[in-house]
């Protein structure tokens, strides 16, 4: 058996209501995506987020939007990120010529306090935080702290809310008051559309204008998948409930094995196993979890919540490893 619990994907495909229209859309694969469909998708995102349509930027996957955002705003700014964070953020920030300041997250909370960096933002700064954080699953900053940071005009702030549907915590309602805020989201995680890759940024006009000219063609099947997903929100909510149940079960089980688990507001769990090179040991058993030895140490793993069967398989082997 080979199981993949390393990419934070949804454990099963979306239902028929989403898959069937996608299959039909393949019939028109010779055509570019009709503009009317793009507009329909923007309208649905607007309904879903309660943010006006003209504050939405669409792209293939949030990864691209995060990269574009960093490259667009890095010039003459220092960049502040969490450490650890989504690897794409670190890699992209390192490819700019801007000074990079990382804020070390410390277990067990893995949070950021204003005290850590408030003295650093007295010059032009771009902050990119993922909230919840990947790979720790924690919420980095509370709303009051985010507001305090945004009140500083030196700052332009991108918050990655890829896991918002799991955490149910969002700062979109600050967008009205703060033109220096942007929020990026994806349909790859909670909507189970990782292979379709649709992401969006919610932001004010000043930021949006910088993206003009960077629009890319979105694949028609991806747009159809996203439209139908947003028209059928119930499946996403049902999947999240299933994940929450499995998450609790896994946390209870591994805690009994003496593995340290950290609170997670996502569809994955960070575990401190006490076993060096644990991810390599699991790979040998056909279990792929995210190896974060490069960011923390080799005793930590990030484990995506899978199907009940996959989770049982993982639990049985991790138990054997802890006992050996």
């Amino acid at each position: 058996m080979r199981i993949r619990l390393d990419k934070n994907e949804m454990f099963k495909p979306p239902p028929k209501e989403i898959i069937d229209p996608v299959k039909e859309s393949i019939e028109n694969i010779n055509r570019y995506t009709p503009q009317v469909k793009i507009e329909e998708l923007i309208g649905l995102i607007s309904d879903y987020t309660k943010i006006p349509q003209d504050s939405i930027i669409l792209s293939s996957a949030s990864d691209i939007l995060i990269k574009e955002f960093i490259y667009l705003f890095a010039r003459n700014r220092q960049i502040i990120i969490a450490d650890p964070t989504f690897f794409l953020v670190t890699n992209t920030a390192q490819k700019t010529s801007s000074p990079l300041l990382k804020i070390r997250l410390r277990e067990p909370e893995f949070k950021i306090s204003l005290e850590q960096f408030i003295d650093e933002i007295n010059k032009p700064t771009m902050i990119v935080f993922d909230n919840p954080n990947n790979p720790t699953g924690s919420l980095l900053l509370n709303k009051k702290d985010v507001q305090t940071v945004l009140e500083n005009e030196n700052v332009i702030f991108l918050i990655d809310e890829a896991y918002f549907e799991f955490s149910k915590i969002s700062y979109v309602n600050l967008l009205n008051d703060f033109p220096n805020l942007a929020i990026v989201r994806t349909l790859s995680k909670s909507f189970g559309l990782a292979g379709s890759g649709i992401g969006y940024i919610l932001c004010g006009d000043v930021i949006k204008r910088r993206f003009i000219g960077l629009e890319t063609m979105l694949p028609y099947p991806s747009v159809v998948a996203a439209i139908n997903a947003l028209q059928n929100l119930d499946y996403m909510k049902k999947y999240i409930n299933e994940i929450e149940k499995e998450k609790k079960r896994i946390i209870t089980s591994v805690s009994k094995m003496g593995i340290m688990v950290f609170p997670s507001y996502t569809n994955f769990i960070l575990m401190k196993t006490g076993i060096q090179n644990i991810s390599q040991n699991l790979v040998k058993l056909g279990i792929y979890v995210h190896d974060i030895s490069e960011q923390l140490s080799s005793e930590y793993i990030r484990v995506t919540i899978g199907t009940e069967k996959e989770n049982n398989y993982f639990l049985s082997y991790i138990e054997k490893l802890t006992k050996s």
């Binding site: 801007s98 990079l100 300041l101 990382k102």
Partner: peptide, 11 residues
């Protein structure tokens, strides 16, 4: 200082 123009805030 952990790299060229790269720093880490820690305690």
């Amino acid at each position: 200082i952990i790299g060229y123009k790269e720093e880490l805030i820690t305690q």
